[in-house]
């Protein structure tokens, strides 16, 4: 245990970087991590919520199938989840449609566009299907398609812009690992 602050200072200290560091994927943060092209900065900041939405839709579709497959499904609950996924996907597609992708971002933008199409097709199928546990070939097809979406999602990840499979943005708080250098110095 090291670097204990006096009892009266046990909130974020005045020099803690938490006060200075903007959330991931706002322009200042992107510039700080080395994405300096202005158009690219604008693109990344706007694309992050799209990426996040796709990530969550993928989790919901996988999760709904997981619960069906393990016999833990509740059809009413499943419908609510699929409704929410449809809404998230719709909003994300709309947002993506309004995004300006400069040449360096064009491939990424295309990738996100492809993901939207894949997720929408899967969602539509899940809504229409009668999910029967024994239909193994259909299950295998669905799982394979979800994995294909996942691979695309990984390809679209850009940690510097906060686009990561796991949301780590709240994993550390209060003068945490951003100050590793300070911790070293206090040893």
């Amino acid at each position: 245990m090291r670097a204990e602050a006096p009892a009266g200072r046990r909130i974020h200290s005045a020099d803690c970087e938490i006060w200075d560091v903007p959330p991931d994927a706002v322009p200042d943060a992107l510039i700080a991590v080395g994405i300096e092209d202005e158009a690219l900065v604008r693109y990344c900041a706007a694309a992050r919520p799209v990426y996040d939405a796709y990530k969550r839709v993928l989790g919901q579709l996988s999760g709904v199938l997981l619960l069906v497959r393990t016999g833990a499904d509740d059809p009413a609950w499943r419908d609510r989840i699929l409704d929410a996924a449809a809404e998230q996907l719709g909003e994300a597609r709309e947002r993506l449609g309004g995004l300006e992708a400069s040449p360096p971002a064009a491939r990424h933008h295309d990738l996100l566009g492809g993901l939207a199409g894949q997720l929408a097709a899967l969602l539509a199928r899940l809504r229409q299907m009668v999910l029967v546990v024994g239909a193994d070939r259909e299950w295998d097809r669905l799982v394979a398609e979800l994995y294909a979406v996942h691979r695309r999602l990984l390809a679209a990840s850009e940690p510097r812009a906060g686009m990561t499979p796991v949301d780590f943005s709240h994993a550390c708080c209060s003068c945490g690992t951003r100050r590793r250098g300070a911790a070293e110095a206090a040893r």
């Binding site: 993928l58 989790g59 996988s62 619960l67 497959r69 299950w139 996942h150 999602l153 949301d167």
Partner: peptide
């Protein structure tokens, strides 16, 4: 949603497909 990877839910689905996941 902190610290959860949707990819892990997908891998959980794969386990369920292989009848190797017990909820």
């Amino acid at each position: 949603m902190v610290a959860v990877d949707p990819g892990d839910i997908l891998r959980g689905l794969q386990l369920a497909r292989e009848n190797r996941l017990v909820l």
